[in-house]
Design a protein around this nucleic acid. Sequence first.
DNA 1: GTAGCAGCGCGACTTTAGTCACTGCCCGTA
DNA 2: TACGGGCAGTGACTAAAGTCGCGCTGCTAC
Lengths: 234, 234
Amino acid sequence: MSHESPNLAAALQKTGLFSNLTPSELQLLAARTVRKLFSSGELLFSEGEPCTGLHIVSRGKVRIFKTSMSGREQVLAVEGPGSSVAELPVFDGGPYPASVVALEDSEIAFISRRDFHAYCMEHPDVALKVLAVVGARLRRLVGIIEELSFTTIRQRLVATLVKLAQAEGKQTPRGLEFRLPDSHQEIANQLGTVRELISRNLMRLQAEGLIEVDARHIVVKDMRGLNALLEASS
Amino acid sequence: MSHESPNLAAALQKTGLFSNLTPSELQLLAARTVRKLFSSGELLFSEGEPCTGLHIVSRGKVRIFKTSMSGREQVLAVEGPGSSVAELPVFDGGPYPASVVALEDSEIAFISRRDFHAYCMEHPDVALKVLAVVGARLRRLVGIIEELSFTTIRQRLVATLVKLAQAEGKQTPRGLEFRLPDSHQEIANQLGTVRELISRNLMRLQAEGLIEVDARHIVVKDMRGLNALLEASS
DNA sequence: GTAGCAGCGCGACTTTAGTCACTGCCCGTA
DNA sequence: TACGGGCAGTGACTAAAGTCGCGCTGCTAC
């Protein structure tokens, strides 16, 4: 661990769930949390297990995903510091609907179901904040459904390329350059497909002159052309 | 309209959101709601519109769905009396993520964003109830994602047949009989595909001896066989 | 160094999904 | 009765997705 773990109260505040609580209230809540450490690749919990409480990522990165019987994965979300995970089963009492794994060494603030429940009763505005967070999650899920049911893998791939290019691309004489942050396998998981299709589609985009691929290094030659692929019949 | 509209307070209570409020509190809330009538086929609102408030179905049936640019539909949920619709954008303030249409002549209790917001601040337990409802919705969405990304249309169709057979099937000498409640087109929308595939898959199941099809009349000949199709690599 | 392993490229193939165009049926109504 | 509309069945086809198998590279651990 490279640096000392941040103050828990501060981490809680970052979530947005608790941003308008007084420092003393935050301390009170922080007192009820347990800090848990997970190393990269470790499971926080698995789909189907009974829900024990709310998890908040204070450091690191986690992936929420579903696994099929044949071993395929579908990523529902990747959450970084300040995000909460499993807000919902805390309230409806059911089992976790998906599994969560740490993608990096991560630190998680954990609040038990009971405690958080009680806390929400005392602080109605916190409950509303939680609703807003859950709302955002719902929106993302609807977005995934839309993609799965209306778009091709090619389009989904182009969409993620465009997003990455805009987020971390660097303008060079050759075009907008960037590196893929994940392996083909991981991208496939996120798009709900298999590795080969990522590879093939990248090659195909290259053959069409829209991008250039060298392992994980990507050069966008024709951003306009990429966007055109997204417009058509999404 | 065949019968008089039910008492609003009673309708609210049915939602489960308000089940532990006192009658006088219910009356207070009911006073803040507006009754709206929609005839079959009418849109309650469309995807992308700014959210104005919470809708509660007190009579009738509504469908929540997404539409693609090419005209395909993906049904997210069908809600009957007592269910709320669009709980989430009420809190995160964003636009509606999907469209909602009345499938029958329906009566909707409408509560404005402001009023409901204020109400939740006064009654934290209501907010928690809403969270539970949203939780259930989230679960269903995750279920849809799982289906879309891991199963074939054939399997999804078999799953709905099994569900329908168990719900409303009648045991006869020939097998478990029931009628499809919707047109092939509607089933296709719910499974996220096109009419032809429903027709073809039904015929294929018939050819395999698992069911018998006569228009909308279905006889399940081999329930065990149908379930076997679901087990395999879901 | 080299053995092992993860990641990637790719060809050949099968299966599933989707499209288009048309036919026929039932039913209500002009 | 004739006409039209909604719904269902179907053949022929294309496109997309997924599977299998293999070979290559580059890295790391021993």
